[in-house]
């Protein structure tokens, strides 16, 4: 295809992505370096027979004008990155000096909001991803051995947790695990504790969110692995059987190596997707116990005062996190492409 033709074909999609993805990324980097102007303060001196008093008032009009004429605010460099709500450089230094050992350091760091959100996001990402891979793989193996007629129906029901919006999925589960809901009451009965509430403890909230994450993501790995199982080399399986491999050995030495490219694909995709976890926290109203980086941004943006600079800073930090996770994907794509063009 000629360059010119390519250009015209590609122009609409390219401009959409440039204007609404590339430009906003650029914009948040800039925004994160600015903070809204402080209010303009006028100092007036009131003198009466008993002496003079200085009075400070906010000049509302001047403040509004200033903020309107320079909506970006004033340049502060990396200050917002270093403040208590983000990387909290000074606080971390203090904690480092004051803490006697690493456990104490870790515990104190956990009190800083950004690091707390980071801790949850990473825990969620790195527990949900392996669990959903294993769970999806087992479902795929089980469904694959089913009778043909049952497969379609099983796949239909299996798709449901993945296809609904995360917010709705988490609400549906949330109502069930409510202390007055069916699962919540069952748990109270099992543990013989009528006051048991999953919402009240940080640990249980995390478990609840992780269980939700696996429930939501397992169908994806199931479907991909199931498709992979359809191309299983039967003759290799046969010869493994003749060599006396047990069923477990067949799975371990034949099936898993065959699915390996798919497993890497799903794992890499899921690492990136789980890193952006956020709707379940809203759905489960779990913000008191678990906050993620995305929720952090959401929280800054919502409400009466939209803290754009703070949100932009968190966004930049989140994007840096995603980029680290993205790196292996890029290397893989690069390798694939070179292999293909070498052929």
């Amino acid at each position: 295809m000629k360059h010119k033709t390519f250009f015209w074909f590609f122009l609409p999609t390219a401009s959409a992505m440039l204007l609404f993805i590339a430009l906003p990324i650029f914009s948040i980097v800039i925004q994160s370096l600015f903070t809204p102007h402080d209010a303009v303060i006028i100092v007036t001196e009131n003198c009466d027979p008993f002496g003079c008093k200085q009075e400070t008032t906010i000049d509302q009009e001047a403040t509004r004008d200033l903020r309107k004429s320079e909506p970006l605010g004033k340049f502060v460099g990396l200050e917002i990155y270093k403040d208590r709500g983000h990387l909290a450089v000074n606080e971390v230094k203090e904690i480092w000096i004051e803490s006697n050992n690493f456990t104490e350091f870790k515990k104190n760091i956990g009190n800083l909001p950004f690091y707390r959100a980071m801790a949850f996001t990473l825990t969620f990402t790195f527990t949900v991803t392996p669990l959903m891979l294993v769970f999806g793989f087992i479902i795929a193996l089980a469904v694959n051995s089913l009778h043909h007629n049952l497969k379609g129906l099983t796949i239909f029901f299996s798709l449901l947790p993945m296809i609904v919006s995360p917010l709705i999925g988490s609400l549906v589960l949330f109502w069930m695990i409510d202390s007055r809901g069916i699962i919540g009451e069952a748990l109270q009965y099992v543990f013989e504790d009528p006051d048991l509430s999953l919402k009240a403890s940080t640990g249980l909230t995390w478990v609840m969110l992780i269980v939700y994450g696996v429930w939501h993501a397992a169908p994806f790995s199931f479907v991909v692995f199931y498709a992979g199982l359809q191309t299983l080399p039967m003759d290799t399986i046969e010869s493994a059987k003749i060599d006396g491999a047990s069923r477990l050995q067949q799975v371990w030495y034949v099936v898993i190596p065959h699915l390996m490219p798919l497993i890497t694909f799903v794992a890499l995709m899921q690492l990136m997707d789980n890193f952006r976890v956020f709707e379940p926290i809203v759905g489960f109203s779990a913000e008191a116990h678990a906050q993620s980086l995305s929720w952090f941004i959401f929280n800054d943006l919502g409400g009466e005062t939209r803290l754009l600079s703070s949100a932009a800073t968190s966004s930049v930090l989140t994007i840096i996190g995603v980029s680290i996770l993205l790196f292996p994907v890029l290397i893989r794509t690069w390798r694939d492409f070179n292999e293909k063009s070498a052929k």
Binding site: F20, P24, I28, Q31, L72, D300, L301, V316, T318
Partner: peptide
């Protein structure tokens, strides 16, 4: 395609701060 892949990885919520202003 690589650029598209990078864009695909960006969580949408991170872009919102850039839209609002």
């Amino acid at each position: 395609l690589i650029t598209a892949l990078i864009f695909r990885a960006m969580p949408p919520i991170t872009l919102v701060a850039g839209y609002l202003l």
